[in-house]
Write a protein that binds this DNA or RNA. Structure first.
Lengths: 143, 143
DNA sequence: CTACCTGCAAATTATTTGCCTTAAC
DNA sequence: GTTAAGGCAAATAATTTGCAGGTAG
């Protein structure tokens, strides 16, 4: 279990005088093996299977750590809870969210990206990040 | 005060067997006169000036009513609270959010809109709405 | 051993709901 | 006069924090 993600996390941890614990390893491992776009609560349930005594607060704290270390990215689809996805060695993409079944389809469009940069520049705006979400009904849910 | 927005709201209200009250009028009026992208709490403070006995719950309830009636649109910039903007006789636009000062710049780019439609279609996705937010530093905050 | 980390419970924050009184129609 | 609306306080829901004991380095 000495994969790239472990390395990145441990590098961040040692650079910040923090400690590697079995709870942090467990959360990271569960996060890597679960489907994308998990919520804290969902991840908590998954981790609990392997580490029954872990607390929900620890999952929240570890997700913050993963976000700060650059391994995870926070998502917010406006449903009242934050979701997280893998962000390391993962190229940028946007989301289509099916409002029927909740499925999330990822996509990437270089031209849209370029145009966003252009719009920002035209307004003297120094863009640091962006998000594009399309809401609608996926193919399957249309019957 | 018999403007278009009042008419739209009153039409919605009568069609749904609801009632026109001075609180609802006050919230709508404050909403129309305030800057875009208010939160419920902000609007509550504004309305309180004219209608001191109004409750925060009423502001929330009226904002839902405005959203259902199509007058307002909910926004979520991921800062933990919903914001609202005028949505009636207001063409679609996207947002640039300054992460320094919180300022919001609106923009509209037809080509981006078209490309979004294309991406959706290519995936058999029936898009009902979308949101594009650019985060960064505005011209003023760069000095 | 010295911080940092954890689990737990309590605190917070934004928003919603229950209930009883009041006001629209 | 019905019935929805309002005010207020209590309830939720997601997330954060305080603290006392546990553990990594």
């Amino acid at each position: 279990m000495s994969n790239k993600e472990q390395e990145v996390l441990e590098k961040y941890i040692s650079q910040h005088n923090l400690k590697i614990t079995k709870q942090r390893r467990a959360v990271l491992e569960a996060f890597l093996n679960c489907e994308d776009h998990v919520s804290a609560e969902e991840l908590y349930k998954i981790v609990s299977a392997k580490e029954p005594k872990i607390g929900l607060a620890t999952v929240y704290r570890t997700l913050s750590l993963l976000t700060e270390s650059g391994l995870a990215a926070e998502l917010d689809f406006g449903d009242g809870q934050k979701r997280y996805e893998m962000n390391y060695a993962h190229e940028h993409h946007d989301h289509m969210i099916c409002t029927e079944c909740g499925k999330i389809i990822e996509f990437h469009n270089e031209v849209i990206e370029k145009l966003q940069e252009e719009v920002a520049q035209k307004n003297g705006f120094k863009m640091t990040s962006h998000k594009l979400d399309l809401f609608g009904i996926c193919k399957e849910c249309q019957q």
